[in-house]
């Protein structure tokens, strides 16, 4: 077996025992299988002629073989790669499944054309989007991030300040609460028609809508967080000589932070929805607009490519939020790991 001799060389360098057959079926087996699946995918791209005319089949095949080589190398040197090696070992079953999925996809589209075109393009056509339409895609990504970030930061800040104010002061609560109840539950997208003709630009209108979608959950949860702070904390702080500003900044807000982060998370989710709709309808830039544009040209490969990017961005944003929370709330026990 040729693979065995490769692994033999690694094992010889190791002071530990050489790789046995039991290892091959155990810890190394899954990694080996993943590598083989990706190799099979690559070879099928390179040596099995396509039914249609796809320009990136060769590059995809080479890419798949490079992935296979990485998995193989990683599997047998996992013990020396530290955290990365462990991560690879843990994800090996997923690499097998994912490799099998793309192989099946490749075979069902480019090789046998079982699935109807143009709705189901083969993987190489998505690769083609990433290579040939990259500038436009990147522009869209930047436009989306810019719009989302602006609206989200404004919405989160206003929502946080409003939430703390109505949680702290009954007078402010008296005036703000009815407004919040009236406007908050309305889906932000319902404002679209009004927003686009009242605001000077579609960009400012979209920023407002994203801020609105973010602001409502952040306000409500910050408010409930501040309102639910145990009065014992205030008693302690007051007997120690705390002034009202200290009670707000150093008692109420830190105690409410776990709630605030739930609000920020919910706001992030609803603001994504508003972002995409706003881009599809009003703003002539961004990933939502790109999707719309691709659909207009029946460029389904572009759509899938944009969807993948969008999913990575949204997931990345949530990961970033959760990391921030984990850093700020290290004092909490048992928080959900994203």
């Amino acid at each position: 077996m040729s693979t065995y001799s490769v692994s033999d060389a690694t094992a010889a360098a190791a002071p530990r025992a050489a790789i046995t057959l039991a290892d091959l079926s155990g810890s190394y087996g899954v990694g080996l299988a993943a590598s083989l699946v990706w190799l099979a995918f690559g070879l099928s791209c390179l040596y099995w002629p396509d039914v249609g005319d796809w320009s990136r089949t060769g590059s995809l095949g080479i890419g798949a073989i490079v992935v296979a080589a990485f998995i193989l190398f990683g599997t047998f040197s996992a013990d020396y790669l530290g955290g990365a090696g462990q991560a690879l070992r843990k994800r090996a079953p997923w690499l097998v499944a994912f490799g099998a999925f793309v192989t099946l996809w490749e075979v069902a589209t480019a090789k046998f054309a079982w699935l109807p075109l143009p709705f189901f393009p083969p993987p190489q056509s998505i690769l083609e989007v990433y290579t040939d339409d990259l500038p436009k895609l990147l522009d869209s990504v930047f436009a989306s991030i810019k719009l989302q970030l602006g609206g989200y930061i404004i919405g989160a800040t206003v929502g946080f300040i409003t939430g703390v104010s109505i949680g702290w002061s009954q007078k402010i609560g008296y005036w703000v609460h009815p407004v919040l109840r009236f406007i908050g539950p309305l889906p932000a997208t319902a404002w679209l028609p009004i927003a686009f003709f009242t605001f000077p630009s579609s960009w400012s209108a979209s920023t407002f809508l994203i801020a609105l979608a973010t602001g409502f959950p952040v306000t409500v949860l910050t408010w409930s967080g501040v309102a639910s702070v145990s009065s014992a904390y205030y008693d302690v702080a007051r007997t120690l000589g705390a002034k009202p500003s200290f009670l707000v900044l150093k008692v109420a807000i830190p105690a409410a932070l776990p709630h605030v982060f739930v609000g920020l998370f919910m706001g992030l989710g609803s603001s994504f929805a508003v972002l995409v709709v706003a881009e599809m309808i009003g703003v002539k830039a961004g990933l939502g607009w790109y999707l719309q544009w691709a659909q207009g040209w029946a460029a389904y490969a572009n759509m899938y490519a944009a969807l993948i990017v969008m999913s990575l961005l949204c997931s990345g944003a949530i990961t970033l939020l959760f990391r921030t929370r984990d850093r700020l709330l290290v004092w909490q026990k048992g928080v959900v790991k994203w």
Partner: peptide, 16 residues
């Protein structure tokens, strides 16, 4: 006033 400090039945430490 901090010249009269209370220790409560629950420690009520600030968990953060």
């Amino acid at each position: 006033h901090p010249s009269r400090v209370v220790v409560f039945q629950d420690p009520t430490l600030f968990p953060w």
